[in-house]
Design a protein around this nucleic acid. Structure first.
Lengths: 191, 191, 191, 191
DNA sequence: TATGAATGAGGGTTCATTCAT
DNA sequence: GATGAATGAACCCTCATTCAT
């Protein structure tokens, strides 16, 4: 397998399990059955691995969101698909996501800014979708899109703390329920 | 001020800002204007500081939840109050909460188990409240209480990543909106 | 013996023998029968040892020069004494001097500037003495004081490359001959 | 340009500026726009570059000295020309000279011995010239030729620490003054 | 109560060198 | 002739912790 790829993968796993600082470069190369020299041939610093992990998730997620935007034509369906896609990605990139949410503050200022820029663009896709729904009268308008997006992100992102690959519900099912809840709320309707 | 108290406070701030591993014992005692000897007189290890920070938040939060349970007599109001209390606590204990969510995995197995026990008990209060509401026909019953609780926790806990002391909305207001959203959902009601 | 003192002494010896970069921190602490931790308790970087060695020589030399200036009242005698003092110091601080001349360029810009300032002041004492002698008509005036000083420094400083503690001539004797040569030149007088 | 030549040239520059140990093989090949493989095709070790730089200067200087010896027939003129030639060479080979004087101790014992042999032969040319002048009664005889040579070498070699290509005086002029000073001394003659 | 000196294991990183291609 | 990938030893430095005082 490709050496830098292997290193990123191994680093994701270890950073997710033990934390970035608690994982030594030695740990990574040992797990990958390589030498430190090899690592430093491809990455100029441990931090670059952290950055690569961040990019890997945010880029994948951003791309999916853009595809969904291109393929949907009304706000409710678009939002539902965005939610499910997000939850599925969190399951698929579980290690990367764990590192992403827990260690972003360890990035260098430059790297942090780069990641943040894409993250903000990603967030704006959700905000715009909600604002669109509000304009159409399909979404409640008493709460600002930004706050609603943050609430939704909380719901979805938090799954990284408890969602298991071998859990009762598949990520797709969990995503569907998150969409149901976010859209419909908790109170029993009708009656 | 009380020495151990000062140390915990300083450690919360630094751990929240830089991370647990990236903060040295020297950093803490310097910030507290004390010496290492003083720290090791009160705490037998750096880890104990981490544990104290976790306890401080979870204990405070647990106590509040129990008070609310004692004071409320129907599920909707209880849940609403629990939500607002949680968001307010996250604002009040911002540093501790940041450390709690980001560094829990760095606790020793014993300490982790102790913290987890209270955290689980705290979670059960929410789950029970939701189950109670379902039994009364006030909450939707198509999603299990546990999943609904985890979704709610996501919504609330995630605020630690973006809520600011000097933000436009006070924590209490943010909590209220979180409750509204969680209970009522996003779709415009009525026709 | 005083720990930082021992370290500076050991470092002088090793830096002089092997060079600054070719001497590891481990080499130094082993030679001093100490641990790395002890070294870094007193010096925040290897470079600080290098700086301390530079200071040690330049400060000692500067002080002696000032004493001679205070004690002498005519240029020829003053210059002769300055020369002898310089050569004697080079013998006394042989290791430090070797490091001083060979590794000055390895100092950090700040440290370099600090050392250079004293070195320049020291040089000015010689230049002023020569200019004074020229003004009195005792020294030749066809060459600028600065160039004469640099030639003299060459003569004296270069002794660090060949002067031995156990050589035939004592440093004081070598210094005296350097003075004779510099003042009288090589050509046979009279005739 | 010839590859090994380029490498020696680049290495001279970098070794002179940063020091031998502080310059990596990577630095050299990058500066020369080559690869490490190319360097190791022509030089079997970094040390060989250092040796080549030493040779380059000492050989050139030795050759010049021999020409001067062959062309001069009395000691004063010969010495004057040797001095000027030395100072001019120091200017011309400034980088190599800097490395020569500062890093000679980093050569391997064998290489050191080889360089030293030529250096000693070179020194003997000066000593012999001075002894010759003493025998003819033209040079003072109260100081041994070896010590006078070392003093003279100090004067001349030290110029590498301060002589600049763009200085007020050309190397040839500086050499002339060095000769004047060494021969005539500092004291005003006559009276 | 608290200090200041010291430890020693391990941290991330560099680098001269090798070698299959 | 020359490359790019890889090695492994050594490098400087940090740090949680200890302990005599």
């Amino acid at each position: 397998m490709d050496v830098p790829e292997t290193l990123i993968h191994m680093a994701s796993e270890l950073f997710a399990r033990r934390g970035y600082d608690a994982t030594s470069v030695s740990d990574i190369v040992e797990a990958a059955n390589l030498t430190k020299g090899a690592l430093y041939y491809y990455f100029s610093a441990k931090e670059d691995l952290l950055y690569a992990i961040h990019q890997r998730f945010i880029d994948a997620e951003m791309q999916q969101a853009q595809q969904i935007v291109a393929m949907t034509e009304e706000p409710v369906g678009r939002l539902r698909q965005l939610i499910i896609s997000l939850v599925e990605s969190i399951a698929e990139y579980h290690d990367e996501v764990t590192v992403f949410f827990r260690e972003m503050h360890r990035l260098s200022p430059d790297q942090f800014a780069a990641v943040r820029q894409i993250r903000d663009a990603y967030q704006r896709i959700f905000e715009d979708t909600i604002a669109w729904g509000q304009a159409l009268g399909q979404f409640r308008s008493d709460i600002e899109p930004r706050l609603m997006t943050l609430a939704l992100f909380g719901q979805c992102n938090w799954t990284y703390t408890w969602m298991r690959v071998d859990g009762q519900l598949a990520p797709q099912q969990i995503g569907a329920r998150m969409a149901d809840l976010f859209l419909g709320g908790t109170l029993a309707s009708g009656g």
